[in-house]
Design a protein around this nucleic acid. Structure first.
Length: 578
RNA sequence: CGGGGUGUAGCGCAGCCUGGUAGCGCACCUGCCUUGGGCGCAGGGGGUCGGAGGUUCAAAUCCUCUCGCCCCGACCA
């Protein structure tokens, strides 16, 4: 392709509204252009990268036994009413009406449609399993779209769904999908990790996320330095805690009140009392959509609100207001404690119940209790892991330590269970003729987000540094002195040779000054660069370099095709075969 | 939805406070010049100042309403 015949327009200045690097570079390098908040044009360069990524996804999905189909973007309300999500999904579901005033939505996901397909066709265990996928535009009306393609409202996703007669069969498909995802991201040339994930409000029994590693990632992930354990911070567990320092105070037969004027925070109280934060019981009051609860955790630890939400089985959760705390505990914020606390559900992290003796708030203004013994001085309704894991914590599986890294969620696989099949009557007959809901799995991969994540991970101060498999063109060929007939002739000749050899090359034939061309090539990030200029040409040579190191080497004109082929083969060999 | 901003040429911005012929840089067009890292010189085209209403002799500027967009928060398969 010739530059002059495609549509590539770079910007000299950063767009004012781009916050993150992938957004900034995608816009500047001419890959995308905003149409509305969270809605973008994918210009020709982006279309090529997306096509390459999609091709890899298709190959791996087919290899894993999933068949491509295409479902509608616009879906009738009836299906969503059938599953119950028409009312559950909330304003993120873009609802639209047709000319007859009938309700539709623009699909944010396709469980309803695929379940409708399968329930109408599959009736016997003999027809299972079923596994299908599509690559399609989704729309989710996010409250605040941001970060360009990282969190758009309209985006491209590969979504797959599988249907099974029993959990073991689901497990087979699930493992095949995990493997396919690992292969996809490895073949894209991305550094990534697979982690255990919270199943969130989609429900289900098992879930993994695939994270492209990048410092700018929105998600925190913890992985063990010694074993394969890895989890999203929302889900991460930790190993046994170290032993606390010895209790430095007396051990009264019952808790003793101590005046702690204006000492509210863990740091203030532990310093004031001369004890370690590990000796304090932190008491937090949360307000859910159903109730108020008091949550206990050791003073040096933090509560994981996702774990808490799961334990309480609630949809929304927030720290209670000062007013609510006063109503529930009788004391002001900063002086809450479990002793004598009645009329409210009490949850504790195991770290609290392991304390032999502790200090905590007295539910009285300016007062704490010391010498509190869990089990003797208070009992809780439920002991459950509520701890937020953090960097340096012990691994739950081995003797190693967890390290925290940042990642971008590009894939998420779920064992869904029977949530949709039950709700929508998607059942089959087993060998005995008994009726059962099918067991489902669903598997999402953010295609447009993966393109953005690739840039978050691979860029420098000049622009994008595409991994070869996702580059819009593998090679760029630039002619520097377009006023010199013999230089242009040589470049045209080389362009023909590269095309003839099957090299995926973009020919920068614009009559621009060299500086403009160099900067554009760096900005767009073509992996291999060939420069034809009069200087090298005088000695019968052209210049060759890789985007990632910029190191220049010259090669005789007659050997260019061979030299480019060698470079490309080298880059391909680096991409891990998962 | 709460808080804070912002909207002026394709892009990035100034002008607004203190009302008086709409500006700068980049991009674009023409000519000359230059040609290995976003050349130089000269000339030129392009804007109902987000929209509606109001105040005024006069509104980009002041007032009211409205819409879009951005940031922080809450939210997020």
């Amino acid at each position: 392709m010739r530059w002059s015949q495609t549509f590539i327009h770079t910007l000299r200045q950063d767009p004012a509204d781009a916050e993150v690097v992938s957004h900034r570079l995608l816009v500047r390098a001419g890959f995308i252009a905003k149409v509305a908040a969270g809605i973008y044009n994918y210009l020709p360069l982006a279309a090529r990268s997306l096509a390459k990524l999609s091709a890899i996804v298709r190959e791996e999905m087919e290899a894993a036994g999933s068949a491509e189909l295409i479902m509608p973007a616009v879906q009738p309300a009836e299906l969503w009413q059938d599953s119950g999500r028409w009312t559950q999904y909330g304003p993120e579901l873009l609802r639209i009406k047709d000319r007859h005033d009938r309700d539709f939505c623009f699909g944010p996901t396709h469980e309803e449609v695929i379940t409708d397909i399968v329930r109408g066709t599959v009736t016997s265990y003999r027809q299972l399993p079923v596994n299908m996928y599509q690559i399609q535009t989704k729309f989710r009306d996010e409250i605040r779209p941001r970060f360009g393609l990282m969190r758009g409202r309209e985006f491209i996703m590969k979504d797959a769904y599988s249907f099974h007669a029993d959990p073991d069969d689901l497990d087979v498909a699930y493992r095949a999908m995990e493997r396919a995802y690992r292969r996809v991201f490895a073949r894209c040339g991305l550094r990534f990790t697979q982690v255990e994930a919270d199943t969130g409000n989609i429900g289900g029994s098992e879930s993994h996320e695939f994270m492209v590693l990048a410092d700018t990632g929105e998600d925190a992930i913890l992985s063990c330095t010694q074993c394969s354990y890895g989890a999203n911070v929302e889900k991460a567990q930790t190993g046994a805690l170290g032993t606390a320092p010895p209790w430095p105070l007396d051990r009264p037969d019952r808790p003793r009140e101590v005046a702690t004027p204006e000492q509210r925070t863990i740091d203030e109280v532990s310093t004031f009392l001369g004890i370690a934060p590990e000796h304090l019981i932190k008491t937090l009051v949360f307000e859910t959509d159903k109730e108020l609860v008091a949550v206990l955790i050791r003073g040096d630890l933090e509560v994981n609100e996702v774990k808490l939400g799961n334990a309480l089985d609630c949809r929304h959760l927030q720290l209670a207001s000062e007013q609510k705390i006063l109503e529930v505990t009788g004391g002001p914020q900063g002086f809450s404690g479990p002793v004598g606390l009645a009329g409210v559900r009490l949850l504790a992290d195991p770290s609290v119940m392991e304390l032999a003796v502790a200090a905590t708030g007295a539910n009285l203004d300016q007062t704490h209790l010391v010498g509190v013994v869990p089990g003797r001085d208070f009992v809780v309704h439920q002991v459950v892991d509520l701890r937020l894991a953090r960097d340096g914590d012990p691994c739950p599986r081995c003797a190693g330590r967890l390290v925290e890294r940042r990642g971008i969620e590009v894939g998420h696989v779920f064992k869904l269970g029977t949530k949709y099949s039950k709700a929508m009557g998607c059942t089959f007959l087993d060998a005995e003729g008994a009726d059962h809901p099918m067991i489902m799995g669903c598997y999402g991969l953010g295609v447009s987000r993966t393109m953005a994540a690739a840039i978050e991970q691979n860029h420098d101060d000049k622009g994008i540094v595409w991994p070869l498999p996702l580059a819009p063109y593998e090679v760029v060929l630039a002619v520097l002195n377009s006023d010199k007939e013999e230089v242009v002739r040589a470049a045209e000749e080389l362009y023909g040779q590269l095309l003839g050899a099957g090299v995926e090359v973009l020919f920068d034939d614009r009559p621009e000054r060299p500086g403009v061309k160099f900067n554009d090539m760096d900005l767009i990030g073509f992996p291999v660069r060939v420069v034809v200029g009069k200087r090298a040409l005088e000695s019968g040579e052209v210049e060759l370099s890789l985007r990632r190191d910029g190191e220049k080497r010259t090669t005789p004109v007659g050997e260019l095709v061979a030299a480019v082929t060698v470079l490309l083969d080298g880059l391909r060999a680096e991409v891990v075969k998962a």
